[in-house]
Design a protein around this nucleic acid. Structure first.
Length: 595
RNA sequence: CGGGGUGUAGCUCAGUCAGGUUAGAGCGCCUGGUUUGGGGCCAGGAGGCCGACGGUUCGAAUCCGUCCACCCCGACCA
């Protein structure tokens, strides 16, 4: 991707400022005494939490669930979200973005205009106002953005433009999961670019791509960019930024040798025919009583699964389609959807297949009429495959593409698996799971043409704006920060994101000088611009130490009679197990040096 | 949408199989005392429409039915 940037020349790209080279001044919270803090820690794990981030954020009293996929963010959690937003804002501004705010309530008309009232109908939250007018709660903001463009930009002289917001999104997901990982209401940073031509879009895309890398770095979440599917957004190129973790819901194929990395939805791979050395043999019908699955069929006929052609039916926008794919492979529904240009794709179960007049368990392309046939390109290159005979309990031996059947569409619709050969270098790829932190899209003119985002070029000709869109899921990023930065005792906040820099633990505050020393430290660190949390609760030392570990501030400072006897305060970094004693009078400076 | 699981105190859970005084424990919370370096100790106390509705029964947290909510798996393949 780096190469892309250097290849681009964009005469109007002065808006693309150089990246931030310094760490921006972070937000600093007012000091807090834990006796006053709104939220409390939980001693036990709440039952609904399974992933580490969900468990720890709940136990630390940083978030709390209101409904499936709907959360409240309590003061500590909200502070971290604000800090994440702050990092993102500064990168977006440095990249030439201008922040604005768009509404969450949209008239349905805008969504009808783009056609996405249908395309996204399953996840749209809809409601009517008291006069019966229909609205949606915004799942994303391309439609509004185009409206804003039309009202504010008419000339190439005013382009390119990058506008963004950090705002709530509402998506009625079929299954919220993993705490903050898949939500129905969530906060997103979404930026939209408007360029005069595709070279400009390439530059905007690259600018965002680079900014995203820096954002995830600053949040201490290791991510990799992967090729992805554009789904309901439309457009051409798109990358997702993935944090690799077993609890992730996306499947990725990664080449260990070259740089190929792709979401399984789009992953290309090299498919080798297994039986090309054979000559085509005469077709032959055989009895296969009760053999309905590929595994059963292959065992019954004593042939490898690679010698079979699997038949699968889908309803694509209501129309049945027949899929032929080699028996050992699975259909990749995202690839199939794209091949068909379909919006709705529903797998047809056996009963539906029968009802539609096909022979479930023995369906095959040979002699099949009245249904669109989609073939994975590999089956067209194989020889002498076993296929269904379209008669109950019968299959055909030695079916061959072209000679015996033809497909309406021949393309790659196979799902890549662990060990699939890399399309770039033929190395077996790894299959990993991950969480998508953000995605960048080259939308092109899909929205500008359908919704009328035009400008006049230097020749006075009307042209559609070339658009891109770029999102980051804020809560998901928060969850990933915790996934990537915790131990068995609690969260380990990266210093840039920690709500407080220093967590002061006071032990036996009623002993001479203890409370006073802690208060002085609290005041002097605060005066020095540090954010300080002071545990002044009437709790035993064990409780306070456990909570300090759970809450995860970068530095813990313990003020106790035992330490004061040495004239010292004990300090410890959350990242290490050893603590050290520092003289009381040097403590504010020494602590500041640790940060 | 399919499959599995769970709903009893703020949290974690017993009790439900086999119906029967006033529904329990630990943690948390309140009061008092004691203790003080890794989730102490003692005493007292507050806190419940047992997810909701309907049914069976003399009697329902418990049995039956319907619904709701939440969690997990899958959207897996003739």
């Amino acid at each position: 991707m780096r190469a892309l940037l250097s290849a681009v020349h964009c005469p109007l790209s002065s808006i693309h400022s150089p990246p931030l080279t310094h760490d921006p001044q972070p937000l600093t919270l007012s000091p807090m005494r834990m006796s006053k803090l709104f939220s409390k820690t939980l001693r036990e794990d709440p039952t609904e939490a399974e992933t580490p981030s969900h468990r720890l954020l709940l136990r630390a009293g940083m978030v709390t669930q209101i409904a499936a996929g709907i959360y409240s963010y309590l003061p500590l959690g909200w502070t971290i979200i604000r800090k994440i937003q702050d990092i993102i804002r500064k990168e977006m501004d440095a990249a030439g973005g201008q922040e604005l705010q768009m509404p969450s309530v949209h008239p349905i008309a805008l969504w009808k205009a783009s056609g996405r009232d249908q395309l996204m109908k399953d996840i749209l939250f809809r409601f009517k106002d008291k006069r019966g007018r229909e609205f949606v709660l915004s799942p994303t903001h391309e439609e509004i953005t185009v409206e804003l463009f039309k009202r504010n930009v008419q000339s190439y002289r005013d382009m390119p433009q990058l506008i963004y917001q950090i705002a709530a999104k509402f998506r009625d997901e079929p299954r919220p999961r993993g705490g903050l990982i898949r939500l129905r209401q969530f906060i997103m940073k979404d930026l939209y670019s408007f360029d005069t031509d595709s070279a400009g879009l390439d530059a905007s895309y690259q600018t965002m791509f680079d900014a995203y890398q820096r954002i995830f770095d600053r949040c201490s979440v290791p991510t990799i960019p992967v090729l992805a599917d554009s789904g309901a957004m439309g457009g051409t190129d798109t990358h997702e930024f993935i944090y690799l973790t077993d609890i992730g819901e996306d499947s990725l194929l990664l080449c260990p040798k070259c740089d190929y990395a792709a979401n399984a939805e789009v992953a290309a791979f090299v498919k080798e025919p297994a039986h090309t050395d054979e000559d085509p043999q005469p077709i032959e019908e055989v009895d296969t009583p009760g053999q309905k699955t590929i595994d059963d069929l292959a065992a019954f006929l004593k042939v490898p699964a690679t010698k079979t052609c699997k038949a699968v039916f889908y309803l694509a926008d209501g129309e049945p389609v027949f899929i032929a794919i080699r028996g050992d492979m699975d259909v990749n529904e995202a690839k199939l959807r794209n091949a068909l240009g379909a919006t709705d794709l529903i797998y047809m179960a056996e009963a539906q297949v029968e009802k539609a007049g096909f022979v479930a368990g023995s369906a095959g392309a040979v002699g099949l009429e009245g249904v669109k046939i989609i073939a994975d390109e590999l089956v067209t290159r194989e020889r002498n495959l076993v296929a269904g005979a379209n008669k109950p309990n019968k299959h055909l031996l030695n079916t061959n593409y072209d000679r015996d059947w033809k497909a309406d569409v021949v393309t790659d619709i196979a799902l890549a698996r662990e060990g699939a050969l890399c399309a770039q270098c033929r190395t077996p790829m790894d299959l990993k799971r991950g969480i998508e932190m953000g995605q960048v899209f080259k939308l092109g003119t899909r929205y500008s043409e359908t919704m009328g985002a035009y400008f006049l070029d230097a020749e006075g000709k009307k042209q559609p704006a070339v658009m891109g869109s770029y999102g980051i899921g804020i809560e998901r990023l928060l969850a990933a920060v915790v996934e990537a930065n915790h131990d068995e005792n609690g969260i380990i906040w990266p210093p840039r994101l920690a709500p407080y820099d220093v967590h002061i633990v006071v032990i036996q505050p009623d002993k001479p000088g203890v409370r006073e020393t802690a208060d002085e430290l609290y005041d002097s660190l605060t005066a020095d611009g540090k954010a300080v949390l002071l545990d002044d609760r009437d709790e035993s030392p064990g409780v306070k130490f456990k909570d300090a570990d759970l809450l995860g501030m970068p530095v813990r400072a313990t003020v106790s009679p035992r330490n004061l006897k040495e004239g010292a305060i004990e300090v410890k970094l959350r990242t290490v197990s050893e603590s050290k004693l520092i003289p009381v009078d040097e403590s504010p400076k020494r602590i500041a040096d640790m940060l």
